[in-house]
Design a protein around this nucleic acid. Sequence first.
DNA 1: AAGATCTTCAACCGCCATGTG
DNA 2: ACACATGGCGGTTGAAGATCT
Length: 332
Amino acid sequence: MGHRCCSKQKIKRGLWSPEEDEKLIRYINTHGHKSWSSVPKFAGRLFSIIYVCLQRCGKSCRLRWINYLRPDLKRGSFTAEEEQIIIDIHRILGNRWAQIAKHLPGRTDNEVKNFWNSCIKKKLISQGLDPQTHTLLSSHRRSSACTISNIHQNSNSIFIVSSNIPNAPVETTSQTFSSLPKAQPNIVQTPSSIVSSEYQTSTILSNKFSSDLPYELLLENTSNICSPSYMNPEAVELSNYENNVNWVSRVNVEDFSAQTPEEGTQVQVHQEKNKTCESKGIDVREVNNKGNLETSASFESSNFDFGLLESVLTSEFISHDFNCMDELAWNF
DNA sequence: AAGATCTTCAACCGCCATGTG
DNA sequence: ACACATGGCGGTTGAAGATCT
């Protein structure tokens, strides 16, 4: 079945010629692209002066413009940083290529999708990871600990969570990557167990706030454990002890399915200083009892992916029956 | 050198959500 | 409320080029 918009007329298909590209660019530059279905018609009328017609449907024009002709497109291969961003966001959002592409200026959803299918997917599989769930493939679970450790110890990943909270009641903290203290082990608390990991961290790197624009919460080396893709919490609290202040960020998983830029909120983040500790001059590291940064999460819906946990952590840390939860995924 | 196989990626398909009359 | 048009998205296809045998 063809597009409705092109069912009535003879439509050209297949690869675009440079001449067609030129016509489309000239049309867009002159008229904009408010209605794609009018593009071929008007472009045809426009060029009928020179006896040429685009003969493409509006959908095809839109696709060509968005994926290839747009002037703000970044050409060339993906950088390692872009690749890591794709992996990190895919871990959260799954195959939402358009959402992922929004975090990569100059890249299209089609490009991201193709890159994922042709490169990243294979790379993850070769590392023994399931590209859909980012968990270890069952065939790799037995010998997993070393692999995972290496991956995450070397990871320089950036985890970006967009939000759009007007007048967010927060203070701004901004640091460069290099200025941050080395990642500390953390603790994840669940209703039924407390587990820890040597190579996970959820240090808050930077929050860029403005009163009316989306801001980003950047996490360094966001761990498998703390990454929202591996649990289904109502909220995640991230703490970071820094300059005698304990920063606590609460991430409410409210609407990961937001589609429009206007409602672009994917998670809601509240951040506040732990003023109690600050005013009393208590060293939070002592409060935490182990000198560790602490991450706590609430798991009201209990869809925590213990299968992943099992695969990541060495068994000495955990005493928990994983079987019943093993296959649970976090469905947005 | 030539055919087979693999890889990449532009383009299409089909579905869904939204807008409009 | 309904039908239709349109935009947007993810999945899939297939042509073209690269690599292998």
